[in-house]
């Protein structure tokens, strides 16, 4: 414990010093940042600004005039389709983030020791990460086939009757959640493995000497010290749950009856199927704002918690 404290003490003055020095070196810093800054502005900040402007411009069919106001947002919040996409996305986020992180953490702790068998098992668990989501979705379109698919084939051996995994509105979203957990757990495990390497072994030794059991060691040492990693993985998983929708496009197109429609796909539908760019831009702005605030809150609170514990 004391070890960690001293490192923190040492880090803080250094940071302060750097900040003071930076003032005199603004220009070289900017010059070094310029290449990536130019691309960020061109392809990230400028489009974000454009979306914001678009979300506030109101155009209607048969008129070339554009007025400005919050009409698009009013229409957006009145649209049951948007509400459903938001609820679906919340369920999808909760359903993918928590199990995937729990699974990844369990796997990381279980496969922590670098034995030959563990390396092999890590490879096996990591394998789905190597498959692009599009390919995984194509693969699962066969796994999910009702009656003749892999899943039903094996479930039938246990006497289960066939299930319409993607065609039943009450199941389809959960099928996609299952696919996502399978796909992402290995990826998150990698971060936890790296995080575990950074925890000093002597902490565990000290705990063992004082008679702490496996569970106590995990709760009192591993979990608190993985705090920053956990916060990072949580944010990555949160962003994934909004931005990774290849499987929705490929497997369900948001159906049946909008039951798997997620926010990004809703935006796509408004922009490219209905040509309602105002509504699409408003949905983009709302989604981005939610994502940004959730990320900031979770990073702040989880990181603070971690410092407090240590």
């Amino acid at each position: 414990m004391t070890d960690v404290m001293t490192t923190n003490d040492r880090v803080l003055p250094v940071r302060r010093a750097r900040r003071r020095g930076a003032r005199g070196r603004v220009f070289p810093a900017l010059a070094l940042l310029a290449p990536s800054l130019v691309f960020l502005i061109l392809f990230t900040y400028w489009p974000m600004l454009q979306s914001l402007i678009q979300s506030l411009s109101i155009q209607s069919f048969g008129s070339t005039q554009t007025t400005f106001g919050f009409g698009n947002f009013q229409r957006l919040f009145a649209d049951p389709g948007f509400r459903q996409a938001a609820v679906n996305n919340a369920v999808y986020a909760a359903g993918t983030i928590l199990p995937a992180i729990a699974l990844a953490l369990a796997l990381a702790v279980g496969l922590q020791e670098a034995t030959g068998l563990n390396t092999l098992l890590r490879g096996v668990v990591f394998f789905p990460v190597l498959i692009p989501l599009v390919a995984a979705a194509a693969l699962f379109s066969f796994v999910f086939l009702p009656g003749v698919g892999l899943l039903d084939y094996y479930l039938a051996k246990f006497g289960a009757s066939q299930t319409n995994w993607l065609g039943d509105p009450s199941i389809a979203l959960w099928s996609l959640i299952g696919l996502t957990v399978w796909k992402n757990a290995g990826y998150y495990m990698l971060f936890f493995l790296a995080g575990l390497q950074a925890i000093p072994e002597d902490l565990y030794e000290a705990a063992r000497m004082e008679g702490a059991g496996t569970l106590a060691r995990f709760r009192r040492i591993t979990l608190p010290l993985l705090g920053p990693t956990l916060a990072f993985v949580f944010v990555i998983a949160l962003i994934n749950s909004v931005t990774q929708i290849d499987h929705v496009v490929l497997l369900t197109q948001g159906g049946p009856s909008n039951s798997t429609n997620l926010l990004l796909y809703y935006i796509y539908q408004q922009a490219h199927q209905n040509y309602d760019y105002g509504l699409a831009a408003a949905a983009t702005v709302v989604t981005l704002a939610m994502l940004l605030s959730l990320s900031v809150i979770s990073l702040k609170s989880l990181e603070r918690g971690a410092h407090y514990e240590s």
Partner: peptide, 8 residues
Amino acid sequence: PQGVTNAK
């Protein structure tokens, strides 16, 4: 069959 059966 009940529910949606896609073309594939």
